[in-house]
Design a protein around this nucleic acid. Structure first.
Lengths: 333, 333
DNA sequence: AATGGAAATGTAAGCGCTTTCATTTATAGC
DNA sequence: GCTATAAATGAAAGCGCTTACATTTCCATT
């Protein structure tokens, strides 16, 4: 392995000088700089990043916590983060938390132990208190899709309330008056916010919302099926159903098909997230676009700015959801 | 930060002894071991993994190269790898290569620079030669879904040929006699192998295969649409279509729907991979199961065994694909 | 009790870098 | 040409660990 020492020898300078040209953080005359660069090239020198980290107390790595490594949503998020960071020579260590408090904590501590310079967290299950403690410990981090007032400058959020509002408003505009709602797990902040938006839209249209119109799902496909069954069994009257995410919407769709309910003619469906295969379904799914790719990128930018001193980037913390009207929702007389 | 030194002080032993109990790779008497453990607990000591790596020349990290960070296929693969490795205290650095030679190389070199102890590569675009060179350089790695004879003990493969065979055989068994095939990019090994299996099945059934029955796609949804159009325009007669992956199959399906072709009544479709949403489609997609999760796990095991000396694991390098018959393929008179 | 050898522990030299501080060299002012 | 100052470079001390080797301790023999 070729080390900085051999480069310095070949170039006829000291270790310190080689280090300086590598990091170009100090004055080095053009002449010596060139000598060093030549020596590096000649030897095919590659700095040892571990040694750099130990000496500089910088690992040039950022840790990412997602709920699941698979699934279209987190895939896009990871893509965005990895691309952005690698472009700056930083690397990404990815872990998953499975929406479970213990596992999320464990992953976060693991990343800290790995000496990540910063963390990007899609943390759903850990307490606000724990996150506040992280800040007290001096850990650098940003939160994706979680809002904590006292940590607001660390939050990259989608306005979920607005998203829920748009979804419902869309159906209302199409003439639907009897809606039901399949939510995500209500202990999750985003699930609550989306539901709040839904209620707000109903309220503005002077339509009452009752518990009977709500089914609490778990964001998985299967709970879409269950939700539809639930409403049907109870004899609930509805012409449209809004789902707190696309997976559940797809569940509703396939269950409806099994039951011989025509979508969208007899039942309009709206999802949330705009995951890639929302547009592969039949009928194509009307949904709320969640710009997760851009949000991942923004999280990475935010880290680059605060931790790695890239001054020029501009961080916009709040994203606005948009309606994607497609085939699964139609006008109701 | 609490270091090994402070632990040694509190425990009243030397640095070396503390290091020994941490790694428990040398005899330490039970009494002193306990003293050290107590001291660690009292101080809340966390070893500095960077320093460990530098001193031991082990980073306890393994690098993973996938084509894309998003997408159901790679998601499952990453999940499997990360879970398996983390269970053993190793960590995973993930990069993407986008099926492009330059980017794949760059990613691999990046991982090597990060001092990964081993690499798990889903490398499609780099040459065999380059991979052989990696071996010469002494880099530890395993290949997922790529077979190179002289590297065969490093290959975790699916029998793609057999998969292609099964897909076609299934349609043949259903009575179809006029098939067309949408392949992946034929420079990719798996695309070739799947096609070979297809031809073999046709051959056994004494059905001729001509170039006119082949469309070379790119594994993306859109090329499914294109492929269907291609065959239709040419007036090709066919009652079934086999696609080299599910995404293209889904493309065929949606294009067929646009054109008013009934699936499966007028056209049977078979995919490949069994990605999660193959079963969300309508009709549900008949496909070949690609046990990527298990293969990812196996790759991780293989690393654990050869690099980290976990003796007890058993490595099975070749996986056998299986047919998942579902709604998109039916009997043809 | 003396002895030898194994077991336990300690000493200290790195691992390959960064960075402070000291020293040398260049630049300018007179 | 000589100093005063700034710019460039070098020397060396770490960063927090591992590990080869040296030393001490312990126990079983005799």
């Amino acid at each position: 392995m070729v080390t900085i020492y051999q480069v310095s020898e070949l170039a006829g300078v000291s270790l310190a000088t080689v280090s300086r040209v590598m990091n170009n953080n100090a004055k080095v005359s053009d002449k010596t700089k060139q000598k060093v660069l030549d020596a590096m090239a000649e030897l095919g020198y590659q700095p040892n990043s571990i040694a750099q980290s130990l000496a500089s107390n910088r690992s040039n790595s950022v840790g990412v916590l997602v709920s699941e490594l698979h699934g279209p949503f987190f895939g896009d998020m990871m893509s965005a983060i990895e691309e952005t960071l690698r472009h700056e020579g930083k690397h990404t260590i990815i872990t998953s938390g499975h929406s479970d408090e213990q596992r999320e904590k464990q992953s976060i501590e693991f990343l800290i132990g790995r000496k990540c310079d910063a963390l990007i967290l899609h943390a759903e299950a850990v307490s606000d208190e724990y996150l506040l403690e992280l800040e007290r410990r001096g850990i650098e981090f940003v939160l994706i899709n979680r809002y904590i007032e006292s940590l607001k400058n660390r939050c990259i959020c989608l306005d979920n309330r607005q998203g829920g509002y748009l979804a419902t408003q869309h159906l209302l505009n199409l003439g639907h008056r009897h809606l039901v709602y399949i939510s995500g797990p209500l202990w999750k902040q985003d699930a609550q916010a989306r539901l709040t938006g839904h209620k707000q839209a109903l309220n503005e249209a002077k339509i009452a919302f009752t518990q009977a119109q709500l089914f609490e799902g778990d964001y998985r496909q299967d709970s879409g099926c269950k939700g539809l069954d639930y409403f049907l069994e109870r004899g609930q009257k509805f012409t449209a159903i809004v789902c707190a995410n696309d997976e559940m919407a797809s569940g509703v769709m396939s269950r409806a098909r099994e039951l011989g309910i025509e979508v969208p003619d007899e039942l309009s469906i709206v999802g949330f997230d705009n995951i890639i295969y929302a547009s592969y379904l039949y009928p194509t799914l009307t949904t709320i676009d969640y710009p997760i790719y851009d949000m991942g990128k923004m999280a990475a930018y935010s880290i680059l700015k605060t931790v790695y001193n890239k001054k020029e980037v501009q961080v916009t913390p709040v994203f606005v959801p948009q309606l994607k009207a497609r085939g699964s929702s139609v006008y109701h007389a």
